[in-house]
């Protein structure tokens, strides 16, 4: 069984159809997903700015990672839950959407960056807690974080546009390849 056929089955499940066709539940989930950006990405950006020495220069970094990041995580949890439900509402359409695929790649990159930041420079945060500008490794993590999350946000917004959708043909072969479109061979 391929991923595509599994998602085609998923799209036929009653709850997926109900979500897809709902007048208010889908917009409610989508609005929650978007508004949670303020809590999730917004608070992460505040930490990144602190690491770069662009904000809160006299605040210990451990204060932000210890007493602000719990809110970032809470926002992230809501984004994951609403995100999965939004995916579940139109699984095939999302799976074959070029921006969704870009978003997933950037999400993995952003998550890897979070892991590396916490397992490397932040592990010894007590040594540089009060430095107005964090050490190089932490600053690199901050820049990667800002760029990756911005990319996730923009790619996520563009999922709504159907420019490169599989049912709009012809598309350049590269686009069809990236989006995973199953295109019948053109007539002679």
């Amino acid at each position: 069984m391929t991923i595509l056929s599994a998602l085609e089955w998923l799209a036929r499940t009653p709850w997926s159809v109900a979500l897809h066709e709902s007048l208010y539940v889908w917009p409610f989930l989508e609005s929650t997903h978007v508004l949670m950006l303020t809590l999730f990405v917004g608070t992460a950006v505040m930490l990144d700015l602190r690491l770069l020495g662009l904000a809160f220069r006299r605040m210990p970094v451990s204060e932000l990672t210890g007493r602000l990041l719990p809110w970032t995580r809470a926002g992230g949890a809501v984004m994951v839950i609403t995100g999965f439900l939004l995916f579940y509402a139109t699984p095939v359409r999302n799976y074959q959407n070029i921006f969704f695929r870009i978003k997933v790649v950037l999400l993995i990159l952003a998550a890897l960056n979070v892991y590396l930041f916490h397992s490397r420079p932040h592990r010894r945060v007590k040594e540089w807690d009060l430095d107005p500008v964090a050490p190089r490794a932490a600053r690199v993590a901050a820049v990667v974080s800002l760029l990756a999350w911005a990319g996730v946000v923009v790619a996520g917004r563009l999922i709504a546009y159907n420019w490169f959708d599989c049912d709009i043909q012809p598309q350049p072969p590269f686009v069809n390849w990236v989006a995973g479109c199953v295109v019948p061979p053109a007539d002679q």
Binding site: V34, L35, L37, T38, L39, V41, G42, T43, A44, V45, M46, M59, P60, E63, L64, R67, L68, P70, W71, W149, A150, V153, V154, R157, L158
Partner: peptide, 29 residues
């Protein structure tokens, strides 16, 4: 998209202060 990125920045700057004013974050400051 730029409007959404602005939302992230605005939202973060608003919430970090509101959460502190509520006594729910950054209690050391």
């Amino acid at each position: 998209s730029a409007h959404l990125l602005g939302l992230c920045l605005l939202g973060g700057a608003v919430l970090i202060v509101d959460l502190r004013m509520l006594g729910l974050a950054l209690g050391g400051q």
